[in-house]
Write a protein that binds this DNA or RNA. Structure first.
Length: 555
RNA sequence: GCCGGGGUAGCUCAGCUUGGUUAGAGCGUACGACUCAUAAUCGUAAGGUCGCGGGCUCGAAUCCCGCCUCCGGCACCA
């Protein structure tokens, strides 16, 4: 549990040009959501913040193709992304956008201050310009012949045939219209990342929360020498550079997008708690940025350096939980090769909690890649979530329903088994909580499974269906254990644990319960259960086969 | 090529920092038990030369060297 009483949790910003897929969920949004929900249950003031990343050339071009303004285009994806996340129970306190007026203003402020502090310089650079499209062309919008292997139609920043980076591409063409571009000079602004090498290294070494493997990695980069970043783009769609001499120029996306963590948090806090100083709140909170390993460079170097460059007016992150990528059936997810599963499709066809449970159970707290496997998915759900956890919930509640008319009996004298069960309830709550605090979601889930296995064993040993004398006590403890289990599961499977809560008929919502209360036996004798029915439905082999066929057909 | 991480039961992995009882867990498998529960549950068992080869050591999955193999990174690319 963090020391400060409030936390700001951010998830990496999805680029607003396509749908959210399973890969996004695994590394970032689900772990962040589990963590945030856990803090909330602990009465901790936690805010989960995200936003769509709205700017850049790809969006501008896609919008043009669809005959929309870029603002209209990103508006669509902002809404759509939020809906998709919500369908999985990702509970953002604010899902904003990098194109918000608050962010634009903040980005310009940060630039101005960095410049005043001597961390920005300008320099003329030469780049391709298409006179027909009236655009400067970033590397990947120039195609041509690779000077090494002669392959045609390769991007100017990477030849996919030979894997080399061509300095001077031959026969360059504009990727949009196919006409040859001209070279043009333009003044660009550079952020002196190199100014911060020592400070960054010191920060990394002194912050013991950061994952050691990632840290080593990043320190290597620093040792190899940091290069300054060109933060300018000659583009109409972006945050305008606030200088008269820079008319028509905007910031590079990685200059503005992570500042949106701050501008959005400040907006949320000041809207929600009038009279509160958002900046002070930020600085008094734990700051966590959840990311995938693809953006380590930006979050461990660029982001802290920029905050250092404005005199740490806004504090640096306390933790940057970093996870690996998700593979799909042992192959890399690739949207361009159509090898991915859209989140919306998945949550439409399966219980969203199934995805949450499966992903959480395989998402280790490391940069190791994960694999989404349909067979493993069905096995985990059927054998663990349903047969182990769901079964205990249902057998305990339905036994109470059948034998006691749904009314909880009063416990009698505890025997050794009963005493052990009461101890295990408290131990499970404590140990699971510790693991979630440490971001070990997979281990936390395993601990819950161990708890549920224990409860099945307890019920089996006590045989309340044939031991009339001890049945009252067994049932009393079992129903209370169901309540504890529901609370422990809330961060992982919020929809299902709410269903359990309803069946327990305890009033209110599971999402408002206290984590610590799960270690006590609170359901009292005489309490009447609600309607009891199985929580989970088995995944049939045919459904899995259908999914595999569908995925194969897309490719 | 350079750097980093991995290779442990059929599968997914833990253990390796601080070498030491018969190398662990979950899932799967086999057999048995029970019947409250969504053919769920409970018990028992089988199953591993800990990537390969050397070395240090009384003793190595655990430390050192070499090799094979897989994955990732090598900076404006999300």
């Amino acid at each position: 549990m963090p020391e400060n009483k409030s936390s700001i949790i951010t998830s990496a910003l999805p680029y607003a040009n396509g749908e959210i897929h399973l890969g996004h969920i695994a590394s970032t949004y689900l772990p962040a959501d589990i963590y945030t929900r856990f803090l909330r249950l602990n009465g901790h003031e936690a805010y989960h913040i995200c936003a769509s990343d709205d700017f850049g050339t790809p969006i501008l071009i896609k919008a043009e193709k669809e005959g929309k303004t870029p603002a209209e285009y990103v508006q669509y994806w902002n809404k759509r992304d939020y809906e998709d996340f919500t369908s999985l129970g990702i509970s953002f306190d604010l899902f904003y956008r990098t194109s918000s007026p608050e962010n634009v203003k903040f980005v310009q402020y940060v630039f101005t201050k960095l410049r005043e502090n001597g961390h920005i310089y300008d320099q003329d650079i030469v780049q391709f310009y298409c006179e027909y499209d009236d655009k400067f062309l970033p590397d990947r919008y120039v195609v041509g012949k690779c000077p090494f292997c002669g392959a045609e139609n390769q991007y100017s920043d990477l030849c996919e045939k030979c894997g080399r980076v061509p300095d001077q591409i031959l026969e360059p063409k504009c990727a949009i219209c196919g006409r040859p571009p001209v070279k043009k000079t333009s003044k660009h602004y550079f952020f002196k990342l190199s100014n911060f090498s020592d400070k960054l290294k010191g920060w990394l070494l002194s912050n013991s929360n950061l994952q050691p493997d990632v840290k080593n990695y990043v320190i290597n980069w620093i040792n190899e020498g940091l290069q300054d970043w060109d933060v300018t783009r000659d583009l109409s769609w972006g945050v305008p550079i606030p200088l008269a001499e820079a008319a028509g120029k905007v910031f590079y996306g990685w200059f503005d997008n992570h500042l949106c963590y701050i501008s959005s948090a400040v907006k949320l806090i000041e809207d929600k708690k009038p009279g509160t100083d958002g900046k002070k709140f930020w600085n008094d909170s734990n700051i966590l940025h959840f990311i995938g390993k693809d953006i380590v460079y930006h979050h461990y170097l660029f982001l802290p350096a920029m905050r250092m460059g404005i005199d740490e007016e806004y504090k640096l992150p306390d933790l940057i939980p970093t996870r690996g990528h998700l593979m799909l059936q042992n192959q890399k997810i690739s949207k361009s090769r159509n090898w991915y599963i859209g989140l919306k499709q998945f949550t439409t066809e399966f219980n969203p909690d199934y995805l949450r449970f499966y992903i959480a159970s395989i998402a280790s707290y490391s940069q190791t890649d994960l694999n989404f496997d349909f067979d493993a998915f069905a096995e985990k759900i059927n054998n663990e979530l349903l047969a182990n956890i769901g079964n205990f919930v249902n057998r305990a509640l339905s036994f109470t329903q059948k034998t006691y008319g749904g009314k909880i009996p009063a416990a009698r004298q505890y025997d050794d088994e009963d005493k052990a069960a009461v101890l295990e309830i408290a131990a499970a709550v404590k140990e699971t909580g510790a693991l979630i605090s440490e971001n070990e979601t997979d281990r936390a889930l395993r601990r819950i499974l161990k708890f549920s296995t224990f409860l099945n064993q307890y019920f089996q040993k006590k045989q309340p269906w044939s031991n009339k004398e001890t049945a009252d006590t067994t049932v009393y403890i079992a129903v209370n254990a169901v309540r504890s289990l529901a609370i422990l599961l809330e961060p992982f499977v919020p929809f299902s644990s709410e269903k359990v809560w309803t069946q327990l008929n305890l009033g209110g919502s599971i999402h408002q319960q206290s984590w610590d209360s799960a270690s006590s036996l609170i359901v009292e004798a005489g309490h009447a259960l609600g309607k009891v029915e199985p929580i989970f439905r088995r995944i049939e082999p045919a459904e899995i086969e259908k999914q595999k066929v569908k995925l194969g057909a897309m490719k």
